[in-house]
Nucleic acid binder design. Structure first.
Lengths: 213, 213
DNA sequence: GGTATCCAGTACCCATCGGTATCGAGATCG
DNA sequence: CGATCTCGATACCGATGGGTACTGGATACC
């Protein structure tokens, strides 16, 4: 846990944390708390405490609860696209790629629950808050496009003609992934790691194989 | 709109609405408001007003805000499975069935936004409220199973061997549908009626065609 | 070393809203 | 036609928690 400058009181002046570090810790704690309790039930006091500070630190670094949430949103959105690309270009042949991609995505769905929970919270908030929605919509669009590009790259590399055009394939993959993640959150044992992986492998395989017209 | 017993004051005694009707109107209004504003931002006063009553009516018919929400949940969950089944047994041959099913589901995703919004709200709440989760998880499981049964019925009827087993097919369809619905809510123009329909038609077609091993 | 500035801590404010107590009109019963 | 009961309306309570004003110690600057 975040014990830091304990050592009781050797009465030398206690140094101060760099501002960036305070901000980072607040952001990390906010991510955890928002994911755990949801936006409305997350108290700023709790978030500050979880980061080892008080509400004062929050208002010193963020203008409002809303703004803190938005900061998380933009922070995480960047890490997002890289994550998809990471699993992309490591494999050589198509079946190995599919195997690897399915496993990686399934693992992320199952293991990183904070990610999924935050995603749901963000989507929910995007519905009720116009400003959030304006940020989220293009972000999702980029994710769908990235998935589509991945399909295009694989099929071009393999010289196959996929059963649907890559753009639609990206949408299918993206929505399936999100749907699986949501389903896992709601019914963890009903949709476990193996189920998610098999589902992704099957769809991924279908989307990259030669269409039999 | 809900104008009813206007006619100013012809001073005869004003009759009283049947209790069931009060409950129905409250439930309907609550569904609208919860879907529109989300659980936390929905004030009981607003819900009551939207139904043409006051908070007193709410607490006379429901024990708490939580309980009102739960009542909606159970009410809607029943209408759910019938809706899936309805489009099922009308068509004769497989291609026509797929065409029809894809269109019906896509239309529900696009047109009935209250349904989608409530679904998201319910999922979010299921994460944070154990009791809600205990209701939602089996409900989702039943929906996946129903979708799986539909695939099984179609392929058996057509005598084909599907590329994945029906249970997994049900999960894929259910998660894709939910994912598409969520995506439409977040980015309505990015995932429109046509996109959803094409995605569903493609996946439905793949899942019911003969597997080319 | 003295002074100005920064920034998180502390104490407080107050709007909000779920929940409760009570009332009174109208239904129900004898 | 009273007596009683039902149930939604009204008025109110009190906790909660986002936001603000101010404090004081540490840092930066001269």
């Amino acid at each position: 846990m975040p014990e830091a400058e304990s050592r009781s009181h050797p009465p030398g002046p206690v140094p101060r944390l760099p501002r960036d570090e305070v901000r980072r810790r607040l952001l990390a704690a906010a991510g955890r708390v928002f994911a755990e309790r949801g936006y409305a039930d997350s108290k700023l006091e709790d978030i500050a405490r979880a980061a080892g500070f008080t509400k004062g630190a929050v208002y010193s670094n963020f203008g409002s609860k809303q703004e803190l949430f938005a900061a998380i949103l933009t922070e995480r959105s960047e890490a997002e696209l890289f994550g998809v690309m990471a699993g992309l270009d490591a494999a050589a042949d198509v079946p190995a790629f599919i195997e690897q991609a399915a496993r990686a995505v399934a693992r992320r769905i199952i293991d990183d629950t904070e990610r999924g929970r935050l995603g749901l919270e963000i989507a929910t908030r995007a519905l009720h808050d116009e400003e959030t929605g304006a940020v989220v919509a293009p972000m999702r669009r980029a994710q769908r496009a990235a998935a589509g590009q991945a399909v295009r790259a694989v099929t071009e590399h393999a010289g196959t003609t996929p059963p649907v055009d890559p753009e639609l394939a990206g949408t299918i993959l993206h929505c399936l992934t999100n749907g699986l993640a949501m389903e896992h959150l709601v019914d963890a044992e009903g949709v476990d790691s193996d189920t998610a992986e098999r589902a992704l492998r099957a769809v991924l395989g279908w989307l990259t194989e030669e269409a039999d017209k």
